[in-house]
Computed example of a mutant assay.
Amino acid sequence: MTKTTGPGGGEPEPSDSLRAFGAAVRAFRKRAGMSRAELGTITNYSADTVASIELGRRMAQPDFIAKAGPALDAHDVLAEMTETLERRKGLATWFHRWADLEDRAISLYTYECRVVPGLLQTEAYARAVITSVPPVFEDEEVEQRIAERLARQSILTRKPLISLSFIIEQAVLERQTGGPQVTGEQIDRLLEVARLRNVELQIMPLRRPQHAGHDGPMQLLEAPDHRWLGYFEGQRGSALITDPDEVSIMARRYAIMRSQALNAEETVSLLERMRGDL
Rank of each mutant, 00 (worst) to 15 (best):
Q144R: 01
D73H: 12
L271T: 13
A261V: 00
A60M: 04
P217G: 02
I106W: 04
D215N: 09
Y125E: 02
S269E: 13
D63S: 10
L229I: 13
G184Y: 03
Y45R: 14
P217W: 02
D63T: 11
E11P: 01
R253P: 06
A261G: 09
E83M: 12
L120W: 04
I203Y: 05
A261Q: 02
R195C: 04
T183K: 04
L119S: 00
R114A: 06
P62V: 03
L278T: 01
G40K: 07
D48Q: 15
A23V: 02
D277V: 00
L278E: 06
E140K: 03
E265T: 14
I241D: 09
S35A: 06
R19W: 05
L206T: 15
Y254N: 09
E169R: 14
A37K: 12
V199K: 11
M1I: 04
A223G: 04
R197D: 13
Q144N: 01
S238T: 09
G9Q: 13
I241K: 07
D277Y: 00
A151N: 02
R26G: 06
A147C: 00
Q144I: 00
I167W: 01
V193G: 04
V142H: 00
G179Y: 06
Y125L: 05
G276P: 02
I65K: 02
A239V: 03
E13T: 12
E222P: 03
H226V: 08
V268H: 08
R31I: 02
D100E: 14
A68H: 13
Q186M: 10
M250W: 05
E83G: 11
D139F: 00
T183C: 08
G56N: 07
S15C: 11
S165R: 13
I155V: 12
L196A: 07
E112V: 05
Q121S: 02
N198M: 05
Y109L: 14
